[in-house]
Structures are given as structure tokens and as C-alpha cells.
Design a protein around this nucleic acid. Structure first.
Length: 291
DNA sequence: CCTCGCTCCTGGTCGC
DNA sequence: TGCGACCAGGAGCGAG
């Protein structure tokens, strides 16, 4: 499941390939992948064809490529199973929903396949709007309600702690709320909670200072995943061009139910929560109640 | 305004 | 061998 680190690897891998490239043709194989586009497929195709792409940007799990048409961008969300694959002109991929043919001034012709098995992801053309807290920056309108992510220079730690404490809910639900803090999905939420020794359903207003270590662990988990994703151009290109699209992770809690906790040895537990799995150590992450 | 549950989706896997 | 049930979960939406 692509969360912030995976999306960032895609963004970085796309950057050298698409920046300055011109879109020569667009094919929409499945209109459901345009669910978030405001208009029919013809509108999407018309607005993209012939346009030039600028350097890709990201906030949380949202990725967008600003376009030469003023104040507009191609917004990409990978959803559960989305991939953006850079190919040569002759290569196709199963379950390609949208295809862009590009012409790059240096790299020549390039094919960009948007592949998505479960069609939770999407592409859309959207307008860019200034951000509230930093009007010199702009983001797509459909990203404007998303909070900054913890790797964003503009992320305000104290503001986050205050907003977290005001919530009347469990901490994992809060971590997954992209309007509070963006980029965290189910896997890295479980990993950060395990590292900070916090139970997933602990009330946010009971965290107190452990919220500080929780945010710190979120950043550490992201940093490790990014390090695994590689930072060289070649590695990034392989990710974007690769078969799976996602790099292998070393996980301590997620998906490890029944296996020993790497910290205390007690078998890890998996419970259903919010219609998905929560993986944790019942000893290291005991249930606590509000103070 | 806030919280929470439902819905969208497909393909791999499992059990009968 | 075939087929139905189940499972994975990000994000938007509407109910309360």
C-alpha cells in the first residue's frame, strides 16, 4: 500500500523523466480512473494533450505534476494499488488504465502507464490554489484540505500536538486522518505506534508528552522506508520502472501477527479496527485510558 | 464542526 | 475442477 515514502519514491523517480516533457497523446482505457477528474474523458484528454510538464510535487500521499497551462496540474493518487510506470514506446502493462505518451527534449519518447488493479487510485486535471498558511505555495484544489505531512518543512509540530489533544478519538484513527497529518497509512501507523509503545486505541487526549515521541517515530519510520527506497537516480528509476513499484520493507509489527515482538518476544497480535488490521504487542503497547 | 461507518474496487487465495 | 466467500485499505461522503 503506497504511503508517503512510496509516493515520494515515485515522485523522485518521475522528476528527471517528466520535467520539461511534452504530452503528445493520451489514452484513457478505464474512465473509472478519472473519478476525481471534474469532466468527461474527452476533457481530460484535451487539456493534457500538447501540454508541457513541470517538476512533480507531493503532499502526503498526493502527487501532482504542474502543467504549462497556467495554475493547473495533473493530480495522481495511487490509492491502494496504483503504479506509475515509465516505459519505452512499445511496452504495455496489464491493467493500464491511462497512458500518456511523452516527448522529452533530452530523453526522447517515453511512455507513462498508470496501472491500477483496484481502481482506488485516480488521475485528474485540477487547478492550483494558494495554500492558506503559505500563499506563495500552491497545491491542487483537491489537496487543499489535506494537512501538511511530517516531512514538510512547513509542518508545525506544536500545532499538530495541540490539534491531536483536542481530538476525542483513538490515536490510530487520528494518525490516519489526512486532514490532521498526511502521509500515514495503515502500515506505518502500526509501525510508529509499536515503536512509540502506544496502543492504537488510546485516546488522543491521554497521550500527553508521548505524542512527541510518536511523531518522532513516524518520522523515523518514514526515513527508514525512504532509505530503503534508495536515493540515487538509478534506483529511483528502477522503482518507477520496476515490476512491483514498491520496495521491500523491514517491518516490526505490521503483518507479523503470531511472530515474536522484536522488543520483548511476546507474540504480536492482530485485531480488526476501522475495517482493517491493527498489529501490536499487547505487552509493549498496553491499553491506557484517558487521564 | 466533529466523529464514525459505509462504499467504492479487483484479483488472489481458501475451503468445500 | 469449479465456484463462491473473503480479504487487502485510502479517501470521500453523509448521517447523527
Amino acid at each position: 500500500m503506497p504511503e508517503l515514502p512510496e509516493v515520494e519514491v515515485v515522485r523522485a523517480g518521475l522528476e528527471p523523466a517528466v520535467t520539461g516533457a511534452r504530452v503528445t497523446s493520451v489514452t484513457v482505457f478505464d474512465e473509472r480512473s478519472l473519478r476525481r477528474h471534474d469532466g468527461p474523458r474527452e476533457d481530460f484528454i484535451d487539456r493534457l494533450t500538447g501540454i508541457r510538464m513541470l517538476a512533480p510535487e507531493r503532499r502526503g500521499k498526493f502527487l501532482w505534476i504542474p502543467l504549462s497551462a497556467p495554475a493547473s496540474a495533473l493530480v495522481v493518487h495511487l490509492g491502494m494499488s496504483g503504479q506509475v510506470l515509465l516505459r519505452d514506446r512499445d511496452t504495455d502493462d496489464p491493467r493500464t488504465r491511462i497512458r500518456l505518451e511523452l516527448e522529452h527534449p533530452e530523453h526522447g519518447p517515453l511512455r507513462l502507464n498508470f496501472v491500477d488493479q483496484r481502481i482506488f487510485g485516480s488521475m485528474a486535471i485540477d487547478r492550483l490554489v494558494p495554500t492558506k498558511d503559505h500563499p506563495a505555495q500552491s497545491v491542487p484544489s483537491q489537496v487543499a484540505h489535506i494537512a501538511r505531512d511530517p516531512l514538510d518543512e512547513g509542518f508545525d509540530d506544536e500545532h499538530f500536538f495541540a490539534a491531536l489533544a483536542r481530538r476525542r478519538t483513538g490515536v490510530k484513527r487520528a494518525l490516519l486522518d489526512q486532514t490532521l497529518v498526511s502521509g500515514i497509512g495503515n502500515i506505518y501507523a502500526d509501525e510508529a505506534l509499536w515503536a512509540a509503545r502506544v496502543h492504537y486505541n488510546e485516546p488522543t487526549d491521554a497521550l500527553s508528552r508521548r505524542a512527541v515521541s510518536l511523531l518522532s517515530e513516524v518520522r523515523a519510520v518514514f526515513a527508514r522506508a525512504l532509505a530503503e527506497g534508495g536515493t540515487s537516480f538509478d534506483t529511483q528509476y528502477l522503482q518507477v520502472n520496476g515490476e512491483s513499484g514498491y520496495f521491500a520493507r523491514s517491518l516490526n509489527a505490521y503483518g507479523r501477527q503470531g511472530l515474536p515482538c522484536p522488543r520483548c518476544g511476546r507474540p504480536l497480535v492482530r485485531e480488526r479496527f476501522m475495517n482493517r488490521g491493527s498489529h501490536f504487542c499487547a505487552k509493549c503497547q498496553p491499553v491506557r485510558r484517558a487521564a
